[in-house]
Design a binder for these strands. Structure first.
Lengths: 338, 338
DNA sequence: TTGTATGCGTTATCAC
DNA sequence: GTGATAACGCATACAA
């Protein structure tokens, strides 16, 4: 591998000049410039990443930390889209993106801090993190080390750091309102753990939505489960239906699968007997019977904007912002009165 | 940030000894060892990644290159699983994983080579690549630079490099056989471009399967489209049904969505009127009507094995292997005679 | 407009 | 068992 020294020798110029040509960091005569360019082309010279990094203390690399994703799960579409958004932006501005995960189940913070090489070695310029309510240690660790960080998807309220997240509470209120407008009065809720950021907000919005409509919050119509599995959704649906729910807001895609399976098995007509509104907006929701009305987040945008914010933070230390995205409801057939 | 020099000073030992303690690379007295460990703990010293990299010429970082993924697509589940498998293994053995994508549409090879920073800068220890039939330039470029590479999902036959892929031809033959055993005689095929590795093999297996059953290959029962979209699947289904297909093998998940939508709209009963076998094995296929019988690949395994192979190549230059995975058919309800 | 020389933090070679 | 020191390739302060 050719080095800058070789280019200098070939061109009869100094290392300094060559370096300045490469980085455009001071005035160089056109003649020298051309000389250097030619030599670079001939030798196929590439600046040594490690050497540059050692000198400049910048790696042009950011890491994205997400919770461990289960195999074959629709949720993976969400994370992949977030990832794509971030990656597309970073690739554009010449940054590398490292991907790492932490375990959602493992309770010990120390485990993550020990296992995440990317946190241990201090060479990453900045972090994009999808945080977990139980695992704020990772975020704190990054902040303690004075590393730039942008939180994705979930805002950590007691932590003053930049983030991009969805206004889940508002959209959940809207969902309830839609169902109410369609004449539903026993509107149920199925969702994930209240210990999770997203689980809590979606549930909170549901509750607020009820009272905005003048409806009572009824535990019998609420199914919360720690794990997001189709089986959980199935069981929750069973209970809600037994308690005469006439509408269900399922606040995550995996449980929605279970809910739909239950309704189909029991020949409960959607939306005639029970209206359903789901979460996330994937193509496959088009082929449910009937086509599923859902809340639509914009994961790609979230990733892209987050990466952009982080990039800006790397150039301007004082920059900090909280960006709130507004999810939309995609109206299909499963919510409306027939 | 504390450096190795500081540790040396604190302990009264030399830099060399400290380095050897850290790397376990030569005998050091227990006493010195303890001294160093203590100093490291006190100062929170971390070896400088760039400096080490500069010296050793190893980054302990590999990059995964995949085709650009469209937003909200089930295919993303597949890639995310591949990614997870690779990442889990690499995280375990202390490697970083960089993720980058190339555009499937962009015809110019040069575009990718120019835009992919990870290919330009030569600091990645090895590559995991999901190749594209039209874009072998990326693979060749990596090989030309003498970088270790493992191909994922798709084997490039004229290129002798290690890979993990599925025996798609065989499983496609099996799919046809299953439908034949169920009494179907007008078995159609819907899939993606024959210009793609996967598209070609699935189609080839279908064709071979037909002749193994003594059935004629009939163009009227075959719908190939360049783009994998639900809309394409829809149109293809329309044509096949008009031509009296009594079974359809849809060889990718996105088009399957379109096919199912068409059949539902036209009230064509599955599997009574038309049997359907799909591809990929995601949870949402459970809630189709009826539950969709599908070919099941193991993307997570593929990623994990690929990473493992690459890791081994980095330690042993002579190592090279081709691993063939065997997909399975997940039997649900959409294939069987009622 | 250009060149010289120093140092970034390691690892590894050689010497003791 | 241990230490001194060169070298990795680059960016930059200082000098000309």
């Amino acid at each position: 591998m050719a080095s800058i020294k070789e280019i200098a020798e070939r061109t009869g110029l100094s290392i300094a000049t060559v370096s300045h040509v490469i980085n455009g960091t001071r005035k160089v005569s056109d003649k020298s410039k051309a000389l250097v360019m030619d030599a670079i082309k001939e030798t196929g010279y590439k600046p040594n990443y490690a050497a540059r990094m050692l000198r400049t203390r910048r790696s042009d690399t950011v890491a994205m930390l997400i919770p461990n994703v289960r195999q074959g799960m629709p949720t993976n579409i969400f994370f992949m889209d977030v990832l794509s958004g971030a990656k597309d932006y970073l690739q554009l501005v010449g940054f590398n993106l490292i991907i790492a995960t932490y375990s959602e189940e493992d309770e010990s913070d120390e485990g993550d801090l020990r296992n995440l090489k990317v946190l241990r070695d201090q060479w990453i310029d900045g972090f994009l993190v999808v945080p977990n309510k139980k695992k704020t240690a990772i975020v704190k660790n990054i902040l303690d080390n004075n590393n730039p960080i942008v939180l994705l998807d979930r805002a950590v309220k007691d932590l003053a750091c930049p983030c991009v997240y969805n206004d889940t509470i508002k959209i959940s209120r809207d969902v309830v309102d839609v169902l109410y407008q369609e004449g539903r009065r026993r509107i149920g809720y199925i969702g994930g753990s209240l210990e999770s950021f997203t689980g809590f907000d979606r549930w909170k919005g549901y509750k607020e939505g009820l009272s905005a409509c003048g409806l009572k919050y009824d535990e019998a119509l609420v199914g919360i489960s720690e794990l997001h599995t189709a089986a959980n959704g199935y069981e929750a649906a069973e209970r809600l239906i037994e308690n005469q729910a006439d509408a269900v807001y399922v606040s995550n895609d995996v449980q929605a699968i279970g809910v739909l399976r239950y309704l189909k098995e029991k020949n409960i007509r959607v939306p005639k007997d029970v209206a359903v509104i789901g979460f996330e907006n994937y193509e496959w929701m088009e082929i449910c019977s009937p086509r599923l009305t859902t809340v639509c987040q914009e994961p790609y945008e979230m990733g892209r904007i987050g990466a952009q914010m982080l990039h800006r933070m790397l150039e301007d230390e004082t920059y900090s912002e909280k960006v709130v995205l507004t999810p939309k409801i995609i109206f299909r057939d499963s919510h409306r009165r027939e």
